[in-house]
Amino acid sequence: MSSLAVAVPRAAPSTQRHAAQALIRDRWALAAVTFLAIVILAAVLAPLLVPDTVNNPDFRARLKPPLTPDHLLGTDQLGRDVFDRMLLGARVSLTVGFVAVFLSAVIGIPIGMLAGYFGGWLDVVLMRLADVQLSIPFILLALTINAIIGLGLQNIIITLVIVGWVEYARIARGEILVTREREFVQAATLAGCSPARILARHLFPNIVTPLIVIGTLQVARFIIAEASISFLGFGVQPPTPAWGSMVSEGLDYIFAAWWLITFPGLALALVALAVNTTGDWLRDTLDPRLKR
């Protein structure tokens, strides 16, 4: 029994050291991780960095261009500081991205594992659901759900989880279908391990790496999805600053103030780029099998 358990591959300490060394070697990945760390730190500390009056209009300071004293990235149509609002917007984007991906994974992975391991009606229902979801554009489905369940930060997260969990279930299912045929799983089955033990101790550690990689890339996708939804007037509502709704408000002043559109969008693109770069690097480091 104990000799069989050895067959379960685990991340040895040397793997972590290997990852740290690989990160230092890869300049782009290092830059991306550093940038993300700064943005996360700024988002966490934002309430301390930003004055309480950030959402209060100041009509004497309307539409000031960037590099105005006291307003590094200028002010919006109500005289509010763009940089301060972007700091608060980072909280929205990062919260939505990470929480929605985490919840989608927590719901989707067990369902996908059960469907892949046992098959049967759960598998049939899951695959049909995946087909249906693929046939409706992601953003249209998210907008419809959001319009139905209501707007706001919490509901945009729920929306993305409703749309997003199927992806994890589908991938976990596919990974299980391949992994359950491997010898160590058959050995565990013959040794009399319960399905619960096989799923948790033998299968899960072997499928978790691709799921982590996909989850990381999904964070960027969800951040952009939330911004797009907020841009279209759903999702996070004013006066709460979200990068997508900041761009949307700026659209009305496109002829007067280029910075209102440019900077929140740039922040979005840079964060998405940093998350994707980190995800690519994770994939190359943790799972060479998936390397392009």
């Binding site: 841009f231 997508g244 496109i254 969008g265 693109a269 840079l270 998405a272 780029l273």
Partner: peptide, 17 residues
């Protein structure tokens, strides 16, 4: 790489600007 990171609405608005 850029195609995966840039939001579509923002690219459109930059072109518009």
């Amino acid at each position: 790489v850029a195609g995966q990171a840039i939001p579509g609405f923002w690219l459109g608005l930059l072109l518009m600007l």
